[in-house]
């Protein structure tokens, strides 16, 4: 959290997701970086810490589960929120086993994810 601003990385290979989320979250005062390619997001995570990571599970090239494992391994205090268009009980379970903060199936409204992000932020601030 630099300058008191909560940093968020969003990874979804469908550009429309980031396009919808980024402006709405920035309006709420978050610092947001968006990625559509898992490899680029992975590279960025290796360079710097994010308070919150929002990631899709099904992506070309990089497996979403693998990405979330790497994020949690490197920064255990980063809260990860999984969003997926192909939800199953098994993927939800696996995500929670890997320590995700929440799991949202698409479609969802902006308000819903904003609420989850606010909760994750509150948890981080609480320490």
């Amino acid at each position: 959290m630099s300058n008191g601003q909560t940093s968020i990385l969003i990874l979804d290979d469908e550009p429309i997701v980031s396009k919808r989320l980024k402006p709405s979250l920035e309006k709420k005062g978050y610092e947001v970086e968006t990625f559509t390619k898992g490899a680029d997001a992975l590279q960025r995570v290796r360079e710097r810490h994010f308070d919150i990571v929002v990631t899709d599970l099904k992506m070309e090239g990089v497996d979403g589960m693998q990405f979330l494992s790497e994020v949690k391994e490197k920064y255990p205090d980063t809260e990860v929120i999984v969003i997926t268009g192909f939800a199953t009980m098994a993927t939800a379970k696996e995500s929670f086993n890997k320590g995700v903060f929440d799991f949202l199936a698409k479609p969802f409204k902006l308000g819903e994810i904003a609420e989850v992000i606010a909760k994750a932020e509150a948890k981080i601030k609480k320490g």
């Binding site: 469908e14 192909f86 939800a87 698409k106 479609p107």
Partner: peptide, 9 residues
Amino acid sequence: QDSLEMINQ
């Protein structure tokens, strides 16, 4: 997009 996602689920 929402309708596509609903179908996917």
